[in-house]
């Protein structure tokens, strides 16, 4: 697996975390450690303070939609020790996902968590300013979710993409994402959509 040259082994981080915070670690992997969602802030704070890890900076934070659950990935780094740590957590509730905010430990989470909320719809409890970032309040749905397909006529990509050619079915990319038959209801503008309003 292509771990970065300065990335710490997830197993080493998991061992240290499990010793310090029992029951926080859910799973470990060569590259990352997965932490129980309600303990994520404790784990981040511990990694931030522990001299061996010194995760002083939240370098990147982003979400991944896994269809039935959400994954949130934190890339932490120590500037003094020049090492990188990858921490993941899983939000099981796909309908109303919520997670404690890392803002209490890292001020750099401010805009990154707002971006995740805006595009993926994960609520961050304790975030001081959780509003939509790129889209406007009232935008229907969260575009980076895998089930986000249509806004009436403005259906993004899939159906219009030249690769989606029925004559060449083997060129279809990510076939699992496309509904088998288009649902007529999804072609109508959802309630609250004001895309054509001239207000």
């Amino acid at each position: 697996m292509p771990a970065g040259p300065t990335q710490l082994s997830g197993r080493r981080v998991a061992a240290a975390l499990a010793a310090a915070l029992p029951s926080a670690v859910v799973a470990e992997h060569d590259e990352w450690v997965e932490v129980r969602p309600e303990r994520i802030v404790d784990a981040l704070r511990w990694l931030h303070d522990a001299p061996d890890f010194d995760a002083a900076q939240l370098s990147n934070c982003c979400g991944v939609d896994r269809h039935d659950r959400f994954e949130v990935v934190y890339h932490l780094q120590s500037l003094d020790l020049n090492q990188q740590i990858v921490v993941k957590t899983t939000v099981a509730d796909h309908e109303r996902p919520s997670l404690p905010s890392a803002y209490a430990v890292y001020k750099g989470a401010l805009l990154q968590e707002r971006e995740i909320y805006d595009l993926m719809g994960i609520q961050f409890a304790g975030h001081p300013d959780l509003r939509r970032l790129f889209l406007w309040e009232g935008f229907p749905g969260y575009p980076l979710r895998k089930d986000f397909l249509g806004l009436g006529d403005t259906t993004p990509g899939l159906a219009r993409f030249p690769f989606e050619n029925k004559a060449q079915p083997d060129r279809i990319i990510n076939p699992g994402l496309r509904p088998a038959t288009p649902d007529p209801a999804s072609q109508e503008a959802p309630p609250g959509w004001r895309g054509d309003a001239r207000a």
């Binding site: 990147n60 750099g108 401010l110 990154q112 990319i173």
Partner: peptide, 24 residues
């Protein structure tokens, strides 16, 4: 941050944009 599911297109494609994050 790229996640591959083995298909020719990325499953997740995230850009960590320094311009945005530097505004924190």
């Amino acid at each position: 941050y790229l996640v591959s599911d083995g298909s020719p297109a990325p499953y997740r494609f995230h850009i960590r944009a320094p311009s945005l994050i530097n505004l924190s």
